[in-house]
Design a protein around this nucleic acid. Structure first.
Lengths: 203, 203
DNA sequence: GTCTATATGATGATAGAC
DNA sequence: GTCTATCATCATATAGAC
């Protein structure tokens, strides 16, 4: 999941920059137009290369999508770091970590592209589901206890998704304009309440 | 916004049932495939009519979408009813009202279809934005006070959107399977906290 | 009111020259 | 590695016969 950015080993000919340009253009396209809306021709034009070259490199549109949606960071690390905070600060820590991670250039685009594409493309939805479950839901639920742990963790995660959707996709005024500093405390308090709703898991 | 279901005045020939069948098929298609994914041909097939007939009635795909996305209830009423509850129960009331409204057959499809389509279609996004702002954001914010009222209301609304997205679009396991009875109290508490974060507006 | 036929244009993908 | 040319498919929309 952390393959793309820096090439490690293998050849490094002049053409590598072309590959990277295509990937960057693809990420941008999937981010703002979702899987169906983005076109190979459009991506090629943005990268200033021939459309056939895109398929030559990535085989198919699906292959390109998979490569472009490779996260430049490990979301498991982000969540784990947030959950390492003292119990009463975890909501705040998770809110800050999540908002910061997807606001960062190069990672937010991927998450939003994934979310956008999940709406109209079942394969993307499956990938998003898997990502959310493994990287967020399971770790968060594991830090809680009781029969409601999974449900509580899901609700907390759904709130994060809602903010992401309202802020970056629907672009509802107040949320789209809000600063991170204004958002984090309020969102953190809401998440914290969910964590408090289930007893803590034993160490 | 409450036009569709029952015809009022005008003619009522045999063909009305065809119109209704097309509209129902369109609603279903936009609901599960979003604006771009749904096709006139597919809708026509589902309604067992000719594709040309669909355009004959609704002029264009956009026109059909607008007609299909006409909400069968007034969302303003739903929100207003929930906000009429005693201050300390408003979160619960809003959670129950929102979940019940979009879980009902014939209305949830519309909201989800709108949300799905907003992702890839800017016109739909604008419509969703307008709907959310006028029907939810403004009334909720009006019941609060202070400079943060709008932001707090937005966050509460974003949570509702997140649950909608996670439950019905991404279909993340625990949320998709949860019962209304299990969901409402937890979600209600989260919303209530937002309401408590801003002082109440004077009567 | 309903359908056939078709205009027009976009897409993903392939084969193969250079 | 890069590009031209093209195929097959699908879309919305229109004109007009019945």
């Amino acid at each position: 999941m952390v393959t793309s950015s820096t090439p490690r080993g293998g050849r490094r000919p002049g053409a590598t920059s072309t590959r990277a340009a295509i990937l960057a253009a693809a990420r941008a396209a999937f981010f703002e137009r979702s899987y169906d809306g983005a076109t190979i021709r459009g991506i090629a034009a943005a990268a200033a290369v021939d459309p056939a070259l895109v398929l030559h490199y990535y085989g198919s549109k699906r292959g390109l999508f998979a490569a472009a949606m490779d996260l430049p960071f490990d979301p498991g690390d982000v969540v784990a770091a947030a959950l390492a905070a003292p119990r009463e600060e975890r909501g705040l820590a998770l809110a800050r970590a999540a908002l910061t991670a997807w606001e960062a250039p190069g990672s937010g685009e991927v998450l939003i592209g994934l979310m956008r594409s999940a709406v109209s493309d079942e394969a993307s939805a499956a990938r998003l589901r898997e990502f959310l479950t493994e990287a967020v839901l399971v770790p968060v639920a594991a830090s809680l206890e009781g029969p409601r742990a999974m449900l509580v963790a899901s609700l907390a995660m759904s709130h994060l998704m809602g903010v992401l959707f309202a802020r970056h996709i629907a672009r509802v005024g107040p949320l789209a304009d809000a600063s991170l500093a204004g958002l984090v405390p309020l969102l953190g308090a809401a998440l914290q309440q969910y964590f408090d709703a289930a007893p803590e898991a034993p160490a």
